[in-house]
Nucleic acid binder design. Structure first.
Length: 415
RNA sequence: GUGGAUAUAGUUCAGUUGGCUAGAACGCUAGAUUGUGGCUCUAGAGGUCGUGGGUUCAAGUCCCACUAUUCACCCCA
């Protein structure tokens, strides 16, 4: 017996309707927000993620599915959605097209980690990236889109927001951080000592108690923002309050991807029932396109984990509606197969969901089956019906039974 | 990478201080007279007790190793 690989999951026929519903919600948002889908490959050159996601990140350092292909190229299964989309944007010269460009994707992502509740080696992200806009409106609207997505499922998770500043204020802030940590870095955990060299910002994100204690007194980014950055953040907060986005400021929020500038955010499960409490996250990355070799283009975007969304809904006791229902089961009480098949085809040609008996079962067993698959109606087709052109239709929900003329069948089911 | 837990039927789980042909519930298949579901009743199929080794007269049960799963930490979706 060959088992499913570690950290992966089958979506079984009995639960796939949940995924169909997620896709339906995304289609609705696509129209409401005028998004366009972009599909990029499942794998890219490893270098893209090293440069895009950043080589001081855990994703790049220890979590990538990297291998050499037969042409000795280093290939990596995408660990997140943004880098590939940015690459495509540059490679296809989309910065020369009409901007802003608002794209979205639903894609599997791969990270080699130890699996646990809400964390898989293959997970699925719904993401959206908006190229060529750098405004409060865009920042607010991308948060509204993500928030709208969650609200479509009847939830309203808190989004933590923070502002990392433009490259100018960030430079000053990082220097301030270095000055602050330098005298006491020897008392901090080995990870933080490494972070001090590679990316001091991430020290703020440390979960070790001793480090957290020191972090409490660390300089706060808001004190180092230039007036532009400060005003913009204040204005964003005003807008979010007006439009009902459930946000909270968190000056410790850093996030583990290097490409962020200015706005960053993370949707969280505040009850922490998930274990992993990040439901989705994102922010602004105004330098990424340029760093990957494109014309300087501001971008804002997010990624939302679908598996975590479904887990969150389950924990909250929120059920996703299954709107797939079989309308008619065509039961067979005759040897005239041709007529059964033709009748079923007529129903389907009129967009009526229909299934016919495919087994040697008795009529009684066919009724049992129809009940089990939750058919709304059973239409009995026997020699009597075929001779008289009148069909017996039983409503399985209330048990009532009706005779319907052959030419009125469609009207009966559609009416 | 670090630490903890678990492994018995398709699923969820019982299985006592080691003791006869390993159980339940749900699910699945079929039947309860003539062409009608749900409820009920009856019957049936389905397990080398994760794998390998050890202790013992005797191992699902105790010990060891391996494998798999799972939870937590780090980090992230």
């Amino acid at each position: 017996m060959i088992n499913i690989p570690k950290g992966t999951k089958d979506v079984l026929p009995s639960e796939s309707y949940k995924w169909n519903e997620v896709e339906r919600v995304v289609q609705v948002l696509r129209n409401k927000y005028n998004l366009h889908e972009i599909k990029t490959p499942m794998f890219e050159h490893t270098e893209l993620f090293v440069r895009g996601v950043g080589n001081s990140t855990d994703i790049v350092n220890k979590e990538m599915y990297t291998f050499l292909d037969k042409g000795n190229r280093s290939i990596t299964l995408k660990p997140e959605g943004t880098a590939g989309v940015a690459r495509s944007f540059i490679e296809n010269g989309l910065f020369n097209e009409t901007l802003p460009l608002k794209v979205y994707y639903i894609t599997p992502c791969f990270r080699y980690e130890r699996p646990q509740a809400g964390r898989l080696r293959q997970h699925t992200q719904f993401g959206s990236e908006w190229f060529g806009v750098d405004s409060v409106e865009a920042d607010a609207e991308i948060l509204m889109l993500a928030s709208d997505f969650y609200k479509s499922f009847g939830i309203n998770p808190t989004v933590l927001i923070n502002n990392l500043g433009c490259s100018e204020c960030r430079k000053k802030y990082i220097q301030a951080l270095k000055n602050f940590f330098e005298p006491q870095i020897k008392d901090m955990c080995p990870d933080c000592q490494k972070r001090f060299e590679t990316n001091p910002l991430r020290i703020l994100d440390c979960k070790v108690e001793e480090c957290k204690a020191i972090n409490k007194n660390a300089p706060v980014i808001t004190d180092y923002l230039c007036d532009d950055c400060k005003n913009r953040f204040e204005e964003l907060k005003k807008v979010l309050t007006e439009v009902g986005v459930n946000y909270k400021c968190d000056s410790m929020l850093v996030r583990g991807l290097d490409y962020y500038t200015n706005l960053i955010f993370e949707f969280v499960d505040e009850d922490k029932k998930l274990g992993q409490n990040a439901l989705g996250g994102g922010g602004r990355y105004n330098n990424l396109v340029e760093e990957l070799g494109g014309k300087p283009t501001p971008v804002v975007g997010f990624g939302i984990g679908i598996e975590r969304l479904l887990l969150y809904l389950e924990n909250k006791g929120i059920e996703i509606k299954n709107n797939q229902q079989l309308e008619v089961y065509v039961a067979n009480a005759t040897n005239n197969l041709i007529e059964i098949i033709k009748l079923t085809k007529v129903l389907r040609d009129n967009n009526i969901s229909a299934e016919m008996n495919l087994t040697q079962r008795t009529l009684k067993a066919q009724f049992k089956y129809a009940d089990k698959i939750k058919a709304k109606y059973v239409m009995v087709v026997g020699d009597d019906e075929l001779n008289s052109n009148k069909f017996t239709i039983k409503n399985l929900e209330d048990g009532s039974q009706t005779q319907v003329d052959k030419q009125d069948l469609i009207k009966y089911f559609k009416g």
